[in-house]
């Protein structure tokens, strides 16, 4: 780690003002990616703005038919929230399966989606749920937010404040873990709201999270794991290949995980 300036604003207003004037600053939302990267000297921001002192960014509440989750809410809080467990048990399960207990208590939903790691769980989950990402400047639908591996629609100086997640549909996430890192080697989130079905795949795509249109079409006709049987898996050429899994194996696992996610989403 190299030396850097450290700021810890107490309000969103202070955070906004800091980000406008501090040069070469990185926002610290939970630090589960940023800090290891800095320790390895792969990232060397001149300043870090830590949002953990901003209480208005933390918390989970029900607003109408939506759940509103503060950007600095930890994975552990989402996983254990009675509200989330009642209204979106699949999302609670997703959060409870991120990393290990340490990561879940330090990592936050805002940090995870702002980083958009190609093997992170939340991007697929929020896509499939049709969530909306709220920033200090605007509202961005999840479908427009995740723009590629480690890239998002966020502009310079834009801070995620909360995530709005619609409830009332069906949702589940099935993850196949990398045996070493336990990140998603393939993760498939399936969401159904009315007649619309979203199948979002993480961990596998060579450009980050993506939607699997063929599976969505098949499930749109009949939301059942059997509907996926004739569907060809996403082509290997668009998928990652590494020492843990070839693109062909990942392609196969997408099919398996999609069936398991649909089974879980339709279970009573």
């Amino acid at each position: 780690m190299y030396a850097f300036d450290f700021h810890r604003p107490a309000t969103l207003r202070q955070a906004n003002s800091l980000i406008g004037k501090v040069e070469d600053a990185k926002i610290l939302a939970g630090g589960q990616t940023l800090l290891p990267t800095m320790k390895q000297r792969l990232a060397s921001p001149a300043a870090v703005i830590d949002l953990s002192g901003v209480p208005e960014l933390v918390g989970i509440e029900q607003k109408g038919r939506n759940l509103v989750i503060g950007a600095m809410t930890s994975h552990a809080e989402v996983a254990s929230s009675a509200l989330v467990r009642e209204l979106l048990p699949g999302l609670a399960a997703l959060a409870g399966g991120i990393g290990d207990p340490h990561v879940r208590h330090k990592g936050t939903i805002g940090g995870s989606i702002a980083n958009n790691d190609p093997a992170a769980d939340y991007p697929a989950g929020l896509l499939a749920l049709g969530a909306t990402i709220v920033t200090n400047r605007r509202k961005i639908p999840a479908g427009e937010f995740f723009t590629g591996m480690f890239s998002t629609a966020l502009d310079e100086g834009e801070i995620i404040t909360k995530v709005i997640v619609p409830t009332g549909g069906k949702f589940a996430y099935a993850k196949f873990r990398n045996p070493a890192s336990r990140y998603a080697m393939v993760g498939v989130a399936v969401g159904k709201k009315g007649s619309s079905v979203v199948v979002a795949v993480t961990g596998a795509g060579s450009d980050g999270v993506f939607r699997w249109a063929e599976a969505e079409a098949a499930l749109g006709k009949r939301f059942n794991a059997k509907s996926l049987e004739g569907v060809t898996n996403p082509p290997a050429k668009d998928l990652n290949s590494d020492i843990h899994a070839s693109a062909e194996y990942r392609s196969h696992l997408i099919g398996v995980m999609a069936r398991r996610a649909v089974t879980a989403a339709t279970a009573k």
Binding site: P179, A180, S181, Y183, I243, H244
Partner: peptide, 18 residues
């Protein structure tokens, strides 16, 4: 796992599965 250049690909717990 070393690659053909002799770089250790499993140099952390991200890739070496304990």
């Amino acid at each position: 796992v070393y690659d053909s250049n002799g770089q250790l690909l499993t140099a952390s717990y991200m890739d070496y599965a304990m």
